[in-house]
Structures are given as C-alpha cells and as structure tokens.
Design a protein around this nucleic acid. Structure first.
Lengths: 264, 264
DNA sequence: CCAAAGCTCCCACTCAGCGGAAGCCTCCTC
DNA sequence: GAGGAGGCTTCCGCTGAGTGGGAGCTTTGG
C-alpha cells in the first residue's frame, strides 16, 4: 500500500528548498538521515531529491557518504548583490589597511544585521560576525547605526519586541535604547562595548544611498582599545563617503536581492 | 484541454534548478519571460515556480517587476567551503598588504580555475577574475600552477582538448604547453603575460594539502610591473606555507563542496 | 484612445512524485 | 566470524500536485 501517509499540500519546490535550508544551522556535513530529519521529509523522498541536487552540483557528497552544500550553489550565489560588494569591497579593504582592525559592512535583513563583507588580517581574531551571518541589531554598532537612521516605523517595530541579550552588557530596555538611538542619530555614529561578546567592542557609521540609510560600516576591536575607538571616526566617515559615491550610480533595487516582492 | 504539450521526464527539481541557473549568465535582473525562455519552461510554469522561490527568498523581486537571485540563497551559500575560506582569507589579506597587488586564491573546478577569494584595494583595478568566477586554466598563473602539479591523467585530459585563446599571447600549442608545465613543476611557480587580457600579468605558487595540489595562490599586476614580478616570490611562498599550515587540520573533503558523489 | 507586451489566474487531466517496506551494505561488538 | 544495529538504496502501484493553454488583466507607449 504505497503513498499511505503523504503529507498533502507540500510542494516539491518547498521540499527541495527545505533540504537546502537544512544545511543552514549545521556547521559540517550531514548524513541523508540528518537531512531527512531537519527538512521533515521521509527518508526515501529525501534520498531521491538529494540525489538530484547532487547530480546538479547543488549538493556535494563526500567520500564518507555525507552531504554538504555544493560549489555550484556558491558560484551562483556570488551573483547576488555583486554590484554592491564589488563596489564597496575595495573601500572596506582600505578601512582595514588604514586602521589595522577588523572592518565590516552590513545591511538590514528583517530584524537582523546581515554581514556583507568583512576584512581582517591574520593577527587579530575577535570573530562574532562572519560574511553571510546575522546578529541582532541592538547588540552591534552597525545594527544600531542602521536602526537609528531607519524610517520610524522600522524602529518602532523593532522596539516592540523582546530584545535578545547575548551578554549582560547588551542594552535591552526599550525606552533607554530609543534614547540611545536618538543620540546616535545626533552624533552620527554608534558604539558597543561587549554587547555581543565579552572582550570586543565596536564602532560604526551610516552609509547612505539615495538619501536613505543603506548600510552600516564598522570596526570591531578588542575591549582594551575601547577608550581610543573614536580616533578611527575620521577614517570611518571618509570611507563611508567613498562607498556612498561608488554606489550612488547603482539603482537601489539592484544593490542586493532583498525585496520579497508581492504577487497579485 | 490542459497539459497538452507537457514535456514528460522533466522533474520539478530540475525545473527549479534551471530557473536558478538562468541567472548565471545574466548580469542583471530578469523578467519572468526571460526566465521562462532561459530555463526552457512554459510561462505559466515558470510563473508558479518563480513565485514560490520568491516566497522563500531564493529570488527577489524588484519594484519594477524583474527578478534576481535572492539574499537567502547568498546567505546559505556562504556555508559552502567556509572552512577553507575562513582559514585562508586572512593570509590572502596579508599577501595583499605585503605586496599591494591584487591577490587571489583559486581551486580547480573541472577544466577551469574557480576563484575562491580575492583581495584588492581601491587604487588598482585590473579585473578579469572575480570571486565565484571561472577562467580557463591555461591562461592564468593560478591555473597553470594547479595543472602543473595535478595528477598526470588530469593534465592529459586537459591537453587533449582545444584550448581557448582569450588573447593573442595565450599559449595554446599542446606540446609547448606541456613543456611549460614541466618547467613550472621544476621551478615551483607559474607566470602569465597578457594571456587573459592585455595590460595585466600574473604570478602564482602552489598550495598543497595532504601531499596533493589543493589550490593556487597568485598575484595579478599591470604589465608594466612584469619585469619585477618575481621579486614577490618569497612572500608568495611564505604565505602559501601559512595557508597550508592553516588548512592542514581540515579534512580534504570538507574543504570545499566539489565532489559530485556517485549513486549506487 | 487603442494596441502590444507582459504578467496573473484558472482548471481538469495525468503522470511525476510518493513513501512504506524490503533488501543492502558497512561497521561494530563479542 | 556470527550476530546485530544503523544507515543507505531500491522497488512499485496509487494518486493528488503539477501542469500549461488560454483567457483576462495590467502596464506601457504612441
């Protein structure tokens, strides 16, 4: 008796995408059983789809039989937001060269900051962010600066939720945090002190596009440098202006693929 | 009379992946009609699948109605080969800092070199390669050095094809090229002179992993610097050793998702 | 105002997808 | 090296998810 307990209403497409997303939360490679479990699919269904994805190079199979995301997917995805990254990358690079500190560029994705680019040398390794990674906005300098210059309704929506608290230093009182954002708007930069993880602090300035906030440009430093953090402000502001210039000609919509786009 | 001319034997999965791959060759955003054409799907089928991909954030829709690859795809794909990129990036960064020239790291993908990482400042802009982009192996220094140290059968298979000729300087005579590869193997580095595009030259050294060739590490310079190119060799070799050390602990298979993996 | 191009929606047919279960294969343990 | 457990692959007949032509809509431009 085949097909006894199929779960109707689930499209093939959604199953394929669920398989790909199964790799999001996992550090390393997954076995077929892992994939089936994470994506909520019967083993044999997962097996069939995983094989097809592997044939297309969207998954790859290691000699030990486990799967991971394939290079084909990575190659394709490099086309996303390429204009923004190509335009901004050399300047983020310059920011690192001039300061010697980990430099990064981030945009807003829903209620998170999404790190678009990150430059760091082999010496320092205070790593909380990573390219393609997300962090809560209220805990990072780039996030605060983006939120501070966002439209009111975005800020209000953000403050209307319970705020995560990665460390004891994270600011989570909505009223105080709203004041902090007002001050950031006034002074033109944001800072954090051990609000994502102990031992590191950060400073960030806004990057505008067509008059609206577009991204945050920031530095992460060890807490020991916190007191002299603001001395990097002139460089940060200078680089931000250069990124603004470099991206000004690029239409907003094509900067990065973030519109969810409505139907009908 | 619905379903009159369906093309049997084409799985939904393959249709979804074909839609994603439609964006590979195109610079910018695509209209629904473009997508349908490139992926070889009827308009209404493309419409349905594109909508579902958009809902999942794998495609994004611009205000003008056109589509591009979505940020969700990019986020996911950052997990591919992350161990390799995270381990190597700081050293590629150092290579750029020490030389001031565009530095890049590439691996072999079939008959092409695939660029994994690339660091360059805002000053110089000789851009042929890009991260996630491919170039023919025989036209690039990183490609030559990888080919030179590859297994014989890979090299033989490569030489058994007609070689592309991006510029008049590209070496395409199989016999002479085989000799060049032997010399590269002997001397431990490869160079090119205007073989991908006029005005730029390059030099690269091998990066080994578990005794086999793993990647190529190289610099691209304007042709005017060609005569002094080899003065960067000590730095290149030094950084290559550091990347080898940094990646030695990572099992080969998990470095980057390139195994096609067989079934049964 | 009309025409053309492009997008969205509809719907009944049908075959691609389904998934339980049986059979493998690999790697332990004793 | 027998026995067992865990995980992967294959099989196969049923069925509803997917299909795509076409109608209708919206947008653009002349």
């Amino acid at each position: 008796m085949a097909g006894g307990s199929r779960e109707p209403g689930r499209s093939v497409t959604s199953k394929v995408l669920a398989i790909l997303e199964a790799f999001e939360s996992s550090r390393g490679a997954l076995s077929l059983t892992d994939i089936a479990e994470k994506s909520g699919l019967p083993l044999s269904t997962a097996h069939r789809l995983v094989n097809e994805l592997t044939d297309w190079g969207f998954l790859s199979r290691e000699p030990n039989g486990r799967y991971q995301l394939g290079i084909r997917l990575w190659e394709l995805a490099q086309n996303t937001g390429r204009q923004l990254r190509d335009a901004a990358q050399p300047y983020v690079q310059d920011l690192f060269s001039l300061t010697g500190e980990t430099a990064h560029l981030a945009v807003r994705a829903g209620h998170d900051v999404l790190y678009i680019d990150r430059v760091y040398g082999s010496k320092r390794v205070p790593r909380a962010s990573r390219v393609g990674g997300r962090l809560p906005m209220h805990a990072t300098a780039v996030g605060k600066v983006i939120l501070a210059f966002e439209d009111d309704w975005v800020r209000d929506a953000y403050l209307n939720r319970d705020l995560e608290r990665p460390t004891a230093h994270t600011h989570i009182d909505p009223r105080k945090f709203a004041e902090e954002l007002a001050q950031i708007r006034a002074q033109g930069y944001a800072t954090t002190l051990e609000e994502v993880r102990l031992g590191s602090c950060s400073i960030a300035v806004p990057v505008f596009h067509t008059g609206r906030i577009g991204a945050g440009l920031g530095l992460v430093l060890p807490t020991s440098h916190a007191s002299t953090m603001t001395r990097h402000l002139p460089v940060l502001k200078g680089i931000a202006v250069q990124i603004e210039r470099a991206t000004a000609r690029i239409p907003l919509e094509t900067l990065i693929g973030m519109h969810r786009g409505g139907r009908g």
